[in-house]
């Protein structure tokens, strides 16, 4: 199956990338935008989807600092 994994900084973890984007937006005229968080998205083809959570915990995300969410695409 094709799966999509969304990885984002855990709640409360400082996200300097998100902060930088947030600060840049008003200078481009985009007012009223807050709480910007920057994460990453990984798409992969996997035969045995039951192994996905383990794969995410062991490599795709660092559970100390990141949360992940698995979305099956098809």
């Amino acid at each position: 199956m094709l799966a999509r994994v969304l990885i984002r900084p855990k709640e409360g973890i400082l996200d300097p990338q998100g902060k930088a984007v947030e600060r840049a937006l008003p200078t481009l005229g985009f007012e009223g935008v807050g709480d910007v968080r920057v994460g990453r998205m990984v798409e992969l083809e996997i035969d045995d989807e039951s192994r996905l959570p383990e794969l995410c915990e062991k490599l795709l995300a660092n559970p100390l600092i990141e949360d992940f969410e698995i979305e099956s695409v098809e």
Binding site: I13, L14, P16, Q17, K19, A20, N62, L64, I65
Partner: peptide, 16 residues
């Protein structure tokens, strides 16, 4: 740290 041989993790510098 990533290998779990030491505790904790390293994040981007606060200053970016």
């Amino acid at each position: 740290c990533e290998a779990g041989m030491l505790p904790g993790a390293l994040l981007p510098n606060r200053s970016l």
